[in-house]
Amino acid sequence: MAQMTMIQAITDAMRTELKNDENVLIFGEDVGQNGGVFRATEGLQQEFGEDRVFDTPLAESGIGGMSIGLALTGFRPVPEIQFFGFVYETMDAISGQMARYRYRSGGTRPMPITVRSPFGGGVHTPELHADSLEGLMAQQPGLRVVIPSNPYDAKGLLISSIRNNDPVIFLEHMKLYRSFREEVPEEEYTVELDKAAVKREGTDVTLVAYGAMVHSCLKAAEELEKDGVSAEVIDLRTVAPVDYETILESVKKTNRAVVVQEAQKQAGIASAVVSEIQEKAILHLEAPVLRVAAPDTVYAFTQAEEVWLPNHNTIVEKVNDVMNF
């Protein structure tokens, strides 16, 4: 076992799959010689050669479209979108094309593409770098959306994503890249897609989150414990499709839930989770299911981002509302 940061675990996953499958190709802006702007592909071109790991011209739509063409010739592309705010430039390639190709071709043309991209707030980026756009992706049928919250999951989920025969949008929260290290096996392993993880067991309230907000929930749970409130924390890991089974099982036990996302409140993952809970478990609920989310604006410029972003305090407040309902 080695101690790895999340970005090291991600590099390790790509190295593992480059070794395992000669059809795996890694490409994007600055991913070659430079190893990526966050060093996610550090050393991979040197190790596997320019045929497998390469820079592209600076054009996201071209990267998306080329990924599809490579998949049509049997490759397993792992393109990087340098920051997920740039995804708008390649929305057609992702939502209009790769998500639909298997159906469009009557099931004959799979798109085993994993689009990797950093996102997430709290690291003082310029505009259109930090936005949480997973809801936009989750609304597109045909796409899987995966968001790890820790190094161990990041490696196992990325390997599973690359091996999956359908397109996966793999979103990496920038704040988690180097914020902590943990034990990550050096050998290969997978973490199952579409399965949530119970990160902390509790009996009074269920907190559902993903990405960096999982850590805010865990911190909130510790504070709540001091006040005698036992919170269960669920990390979705895959946000499309959502593992409702794990959520419902927990809610039926705790009878209360708060769903947490870093994204703006409107039309997101949290809304979908709340809907499903009330459809499937309303008679188990002691209080309305509340949401913690950012305001319904675009992502704040740097000076306002700390207030804009949800944190453990806003989570504790919502849990208290639920407990005191």
């Binding site: 479209g65 010739t73 490759f75 057609d92």
Partner: peptide, 15 residues
């Protein structure tokens, strides 16, 4: 949309 995909197929054939 097919034009960027064609670059990909053409690159795949080359590889």
């Amino acid at each position: 949309a097919q034009i960027t995909q064609t670059a990909g197929v053409g690159l795949g054939y080359k590889k």
